[in-house]
């Protein structure tokens, strides 16, 4: 039971929850920001001033996401495991210290590492799908709205597909 919460969170649920929340919150914001820059021709103005839009707009977001998403997924692991401990305390009066000891003995480093690798991949997918939808905007303000929707839908879908792929890869590499 404790294994279920600890391993399930560190390996799967923490990175996946984080990625879905970030794609809903920030992926749509990227698409809307870049899309409106595109509609008001700011992207073309940047190119005229010899700023490469990828370097000027995308690179800071990408670096930030690569740093932040693994941190957020570690935070969500910690919160989930502590919530499991709280539930165990209220339902079976299991001592929190005993729970923590059991959790620490059942998590292995490779579980945490596979979760972190996954969340790096999820960050890449979220940023690039959001920014690509933004850069592909053509037309008026309604295109910005459509691109925001498309960014959230596509990045959530691709995050889940990537999760399946990574789980399969780790399974066949024998990391389970």
């Amino acid at each position: 039971m404790i294994d279920l919460v600890a391993v399930g969170f560190t390996r799967e649920l923490g990175p996946l929850l984080t990625a879905i929340a970030v794609s809903g919150r920030s992926g749509s914001a990227f698409a809307a920001e870049i899309g409106s820059m595109r509609v008001t021709e700011e992207i073309d103005a940047l190119r005229v001033m010899a700023f490469e839009p990828i370097e000027f707009v995308l690179a800071p977001k990408y670096l930030a996401a690569l740093i932040v998403v693994p941190c957020l997924s570690i935070a969500s692991n910690v919160c989930g495991i502590l919530a499991g401990g709280l539930f165990m305390f209220f339902s079976t009066r299991l001592a929190p210290a005993l729970y923590l000891q059991y959790v620490l003995s059942s998590i292995q480093l490779r579980d945490v590492a596979s979760g972190l690798i996954k969340s790096l991949a999820f960050a890449t997918i979220i940023v690039h799908v959001g920014c690509l939808e933004g850069f592909r905007v053509q037309g008026g303000p309604d295109a910005v709205g459509r691109s925001t929707t498309a960014a959230v839908v596509k990045s959530t879908f691709l995050v889940i597909v990537a999760d399946v792929l990574f789980t399969a890869i780790f399974y066949f590499l024998g990391m389970h």
Binding site: L4, A21, V68, G84
Partner: peptide, 22 residues
């Protein structure tokens, strides 16, 4: 923008799903 302001929401989601899983 991505991380710090999303932290409360993600912590709440994680706490809820930890409860559900347990």
């Amino acid at each position: 923008q991505i991380g710090v302001s999303a932290l409360p929401m993600i912590a709440l989601m994680a706490v809820c799903s930890g409860f559900i899983l347990a």
